[in-house]
Computed example of a mutant assay.
Amino acid sequence: MTKKSMKALYQEKFGGPEILQIRDLPIPEPKDNEVLIKVEAAHMGNGDQVARTGNSPWPLMKIPAKIIMGFFKPKIKVPGGEFSGVVERVGKEVTQYKVGERIFGFTDMQFGAHAQFVCLPQTAPIATLPDEVSFEAAAAIGGSNAQTAMHFINVANVQPGDQVLINGASGGIGRVATQLAKAKGAIVTGTCSAQNSALVLALGADHTIDYHKTDFTQQGKKYDVIIDCAGFLPWRKVEPVLTPKGRHLLAMFGFSHLFKQRQTKGKGGKQQLCVLAPASPEKLKEISNRLVDGTLKPIISHRFPMNKAIDAAWAYENKTREGCIVVLPQEWNAK
């Protein structure tokens, strides 16, 4: 019997968005412990760019990324990590999800969500999606990004009145961290481009700094928490602008940051913390609750039907956006 096919974004080699194709592929068959998900919306993000180019901007991840993505040709043929959709079928050992159930989350290092269907183990970082939350919102908030931001805020122990700086506040992690820090009652400053200043203020930030014109480490203002989503700020630059017990948290870091973390952690003074966020369905449930109560609000810049998914990759590559880019795999030729 001929397998039914689906539309999917596909790559046979590494490169820019020009190497992407839209192909007809067989709809995957769920294994005994897997769920087949009809993808309603998927986020176009940094992980997809890494999978497409085979290069990680994080020095510590360059070799692991090559091992996962491939050294010469991509092992990952279909990109797409953060998504939402509906359970289409379940394997005979699946107990956590039912056919017809709305879910969201991310595929982790498997990718594959830029397609009309994807198969995942029931233990993957996915969770049920309340009816009050749209598929687009659930995909756009970014399950992986949102979990990372939530972990940052918890590790930093943000308190009401804390001066919090989010470096890279308009990015996927930064947008969520800005909202969560503000919900904690912090006074939030976000660094971003002038183009994205209005967006960051709309997310709740009290102040913005145009990083093209101003180095926040040279302004003399001190912060209780600095969350670095955008780069690898060295301790020598950050330490002078931290309060006596201030915390500097990094999403990406090198060996020097790990060394400084070992020197500063647990000493009762200023700390550098290299943060890795473990994935868990429980955190996704909390994220969905915050989407329902309005604490978290995704900003969607562009929506692309499946036949325009390559244009979505170009929009991300060229940074022609102020917010999230969402691909809608079940739509075709939408206007």
Rank of each mutant, 00 (worst) to 15 (best):
G47F: 11
S144I: 05
Q110C: 00
M306I: 06
E12M: 01
D206E: 11
M1V: 10
A65Q: 09
V155E: 14
D206G: 12
S197F: 00
Y223Q: 02
K98P: 05
D293C: 03
D210L: 07
F135N: 12
V188F: 00
T217L: 03
K4F: 04
H43E: 13
S280H: 14
I227G: 06
H257N: 08
I63W: 14
P305D: 13
G70M: 04
F135Q: 01
A156W: 02
S197C: 01
K267H: 14
G168A: 09
R236F: 04
F216I: 12
P79N: 04
V94D: 01
A181C: 03
T295A: 10
T320E: 14
G80V: 00
I67L: 15
F255S: 13
I126Y: 00
H212F: 12
W314L: 08
K265T: 14
A137C: 01
M44S: 09
E136A: 12
G105S: 03
K297G: 03
A315T: 15
R303C: 07
K283T: 12
P240C: 04
N46V: 11
F152M: 12
Q218L: 13
E286F: 00
E34K: 03
A115W: 02
P30C: 12
N154A: 14
N145A: 15
G269Y: 06
Q330C: 09
E34G: 06
S280Y: 02
L250Q: 12
F216S: 07
L328T: 04
T2K: 09
A177R: 02
Q147P: 08
